[in-house]
């Protein structure tokens, strides 16, 4: 009985945390969003374990949280190292500072960046 209550409260906690993390992920700060997205993926993996789907949990943790997170961070670093108007030094500091595009800014990149900032 106690075990049931414990499991139920754990499940409830997982459910609430998932929705809360999903809400927080819709942040304006892209770096924060990505970190929260990775966290969301890990909590989601735990949820899959609780739903007795360990296969999906493995895939979610490895692909959903890990690789997608790394890809998103890479994309963000590329976006942020694109010189654009109205750049925010605080955000630049948060970037991974790994990528410099070969040809500077294209208008479309700048436009996309502005859209993301808003």
């Amino acid at each position: 009985m106690e075990k049931m209550i414990l499991l139920w409260s754990f499940d409830a906690l997982l459910g609430i945390t998932l929705v809360w993390l999903a809400w927080l992920t819709l942040s304006r700060d892209l770096f924060k969003s990505i970190v929260l997205f990775i966290t969301f993926g890990l909590v989601l993996a735990l949820t899959w374990v609780r739903l007795e789907a360990p296969d999906v949990a493995l895939a979610e943790a490895a692909i959903g949280a890990g690789i997608t997170g790394a890809l998103l961070l890479g994309a963000l670093a590329r976006l942020e190292s694109t010189p654009a108007d109205g750049s925010d030094p605080a955000r630049e500091k948060a970037s991974l500072e790994t990528v410099v595009p070969p040809g500077g800014t294209t208008p479309r990149q700048a436009q996309r960046r502005d859209r993301n900032v808003e």
Binding site: D55, A59, A62
Partner: peptide, 13 residues
């Protein structure tokens, strides 16, 4: 539980 996609993404990590 395991398989190609999981193993592949661990390899990718």
């Amino acid at each position: 539980p395991g398989g190609a996609f999981q193993a592949g993404s661990v390899l990718a990590a």
